[in-house]
Design a protein around this nucleic acid. Sequence first.
RNA 1: UCCUCCUUAGCUCAGUUGGUUAGAGCGGCUGACUGUUAAUCAGUAGGUCCUUGGUUCGAGCCCAAGAGGAGGAGCCA
Length: 499
Amino acid sequence: MDSFTKFAPHLIKTNNVAFKERNKVTEIYKNPPIGKKVIIKGWVRTKRESKNVIFINLNDGSTIKNIQIVADPDKLKKDQAIKITTGACLSVTGEVVESQGKGQSFEVIADQVTILGESHPDEYPLQPKKHSLEFLREIAHLRPRTNTFSAILRIRHAMTFAIHKFFNDKGFVNFHSPIITSSDAEGAGEMFRVTTLPPNSVPVNDSGELDFKDDFFGKEASLTVSGQLEGELAALALGEIYTFGPTFRAENSNTTRHLAEFWMIEPEMAFYDLEDNMNLTEEFLKYLVQYALDNCLDDLEFLKNRALDEEKNKPQNERNELDLIERLKFILENPFERISYSQAIDILKDSKPNKKGKFQFPIEGFGADLQSEHERYLVEKHFKKPVILFDYPKDIKAFYMKQNSDGKTVKAMDVLFPGIGEIVGGSQREEDYDKLLSRVKELNIPQESLWWYLETRKFGSCPHSGFGLGFERLMLFVTGMGNIRDVIPFPRTPGNAEF
RNA sequence: UCCUCCUUAGCUCAGUUGGUUAGAGCGGCUGACUGUUAAUCAGUAGGUCCUUGGUUCGAGCCCAAGAGGAGGAGCCA
C-alpha cells in the first residue's frame, strides 16, 4: 500500500502520487469516475442558488472545462453559501454522479465544502461575462483566472515543451547564452543598460564621458538583444544547438507585435546551408502547430469560438476566411512558398496595388527594404500562405550573413506568416574570416568587441546557419490573438512594467 | 518617434443643436422562484462625465494644454 492509498483509500488515484489531496478536473473529464469520491480544489466561476440546491461551476486551471458542483444548502455550514462567490477558492469533497441536468454529463454531489479563500463580491473585478482585453491587461494579476488567459497560458506551456522536445529529439543541445552582455554586435536594437553605478552621481572621465571603469563589470554592460553570436560559438563545437531565453530590446515600439521583453528561440547548426536552414524552419513550425492541435484542442476550440464571436462585429471583408483551427491545419497541409527577394520584387512591381499607386512605399526595384504592406501583399493576397523570402540585398541585412557570389546579396531568409508578418529571421553565416572581417570594417563595427566571434572563423571554421523565432509571435499565430501583450503573462512595453 | 481615434457607474457602452435632477445592459446588494447552465423575476444602491484652464447666462457636449489607453506606421522577432 503506497502512501496515497493509505491516506485516502476512498479517493481515485491520480498521476500525481506525490500530492494526495486533489483530483484534477482534466483527469476526471478523461475518464469520469462515476460513483467514486473525489476532492476538487478550484475557483468559483459562477454560482446559481435556490432554496433546495446550489450549483457551482468550479475551474481548477487544469482544463478550460468547469466542473459542476451540486450542493445542498442545508448541509453547508452557517453563512457558507453566502461566501461562495465568483472568484472564491473552494475545496470540495463529493461523489461523481451522472448529471440530471443538460449542460454536462456528470457532476459532483458535494459532501463537504471548505472555503479556502473568500472573494469579496463588491471588489472582485472579474464577472461572469466578457471583459475587454484592454481591461484585463490592467488586472494582469487576475487575468489567468479567465478562460481566455488560462487557455493561452496552457498553450504557451505546451509550445515551450514542444520546442524543447523537437530539438531534443533531433539531438540539438540546449545552450544557455548569457543574458548580460557587453556587446551589441548584431545591432539588433537599442539595449537596456545594466549597471550598479549610483543613479545620481555617475562617474565621468576627463573628456566628460561616462566612465564604466568603476561599474560592476568594469565596462558598459547591457541585457542581451540576441543569443545568436554566442550560439554560433557553441554550434562550432557541439554541432547543433538552440537557445530559448528572454531577450530585451529598448526600442520605443508601440505595436501589437513588439515587446521590450520577449522570448526567443535561436537554433544554430554547423554544416547547414541556407536550404537546410529553411527546411528545418518549416519542419519546426509545422511540428509546433501539429503539437498544439494534438495537445491543446479544447483550448484552441475555445479561442476559435472566442475569435468568431469577436468577428461578428466586424464587416465581412475584415473577417478571416478560415477559423483558427482551419488556419492551423492549412499551415500543416501546404508547403511554404520559397522565393528569392528579387523574385518578390518582380511580383510586387507588377502587382495591382503597386501599379495603381496603392502602396505607401512604391516598389521601384532591387534594393528596397520590404515594408509591412509588401509582406502582407505577398502572404495574404498573392500566395495566400506562408512565404520564405531569401537572398536579400546585403545592404539591408546584418554583417554576419554569408555573401553570395553575385556580390549584391546575402544568404538571409525571413519567414512571413499571414496576419503576423515576420515570424522567423535567419541566415547562413559568413564563415570566411577575411570576408567577415571586411564586412565588419565596412560597417564600422568596433572590431575589438568582436574578437572572440572573429576567432571562430580562424580556428576550424565551417559553413553554418541558424534562425531566430519570436516565441510570442508564434503564440499570436497559434492562439489567433491579435495583440502580443495578450500572449505573455506580464507584458513589458514602453511605459509599462507593472506587476 | 509619427499619424488617427478613444476616455461618462465595478464592466461594456448610449447621451440629440450647448439647456433643468446624466441613462441602459451586465455585475453588486435585498427578496422571490426554479435541477440550474453567463439562470429567471421584482426591488435597490452606485457618478471627480480623465485632469487643468478657457469660451458661454449655462459645458458630459465647444476650444487649448496635459495624462492614460487603443489601432496603424517605422524598427524588428
